[in-house]
Computed example of a mutant assay.
Amino acid sequence: MTEKKPVVKKFTGYHAAMIIVAFFAVVVSVNMVMARFALSTFGGTVVDNSYVASQKYNQWLEQARDQQAYGWTVSPAVRSGKGVILTLAEADGAALQGASVVAVAEHPVGRAEPFDVSFSEVRPGVYQSVEPLAAGRWKLKLVISRADKSMRVLQDFT
């Protein structure tokens, strides 16, 4: 009986070219998918012009020191029905009454357009939003004013 020899295929230039083409096809495909994910979840810039923002940095630090000197405290925002409730207090712990509270609500990754939210005082030191706030995560950029004092606060809200 005669033995069959196994057929050995040669590795040719064609095979090498196909392996290189397949490798780069996978790399390019993965890069395109990752770029698509990155662009679809990017919420925008923190500042439009970093140079201009750097020029205002010392002014922002001074405003922050002034705000700390007021001693006002702002409780974390709490959902109440479709709105938001904030509790404000003065340095001595007394309710901060008669303040004007407005905010800009922004979705953290820019999936919804920012909109203004106004607050009305429902009890001494307790302020409730007039406009409803949809379920989900939000950034509230609060501006609290009373007499000649003004305070800015940024809160994450879910």
Rank of each mutant, 00 (worst) to 15 (best):
E62M: 14
G98Y: 06
V46G: 05
Y127K: 07
A94P: 00
A105Q: 04
S50C: 01
P76Y: 04
Q63C: 06
E62R: 14
F11D: 07
V21H: 01
Y127M: 06
V74E: 05
E62I: 10
V28Q: 10
S75A: 13
A134Y: 04
V46P: 00
L140W: 08
T2G: 09
T12Y: 01
T2E: 14
K56N: 10
G98N: 08
G71M: 02
F37C: 02
E3N: 15
D48F: 03
T158A: 14
E113K: 12
W72D: 04
E113P: 03
V78W: 02
P114R: 04
R123S: 15
M1L: 08
V26D: 00
I85V: 15
N31H: 14
G136T: 02
F11W: 12
L154H: 10
R65D: 13
A95Q: 04
F119V: 06
L39D: 12
R137D: 09
T12Q: 04
S120P: 00
V27I: 14
S80P: 00
K10M: 09
K9I: 06
D156E: 15
S80N: 13
P76I: 02
Q67I: 11
G81E: 05
D48A: 11
A99G: 02
G110E: 03
S54V: 07
Q128T: 12
V30P: 01
L61R: 12
V74K: 05
L86T: 07
F42Q: 09
S129C: 06
G125L: 01
P76E: 13
E3P: 06
G83P: 04
E106L: 14
F42L: 08
V122M: 10
P76Q: 12
V52L: 15
L142N: 11
L142S: 10
L142T: 10
A22E: 01
S100P: 00
G125M: 03
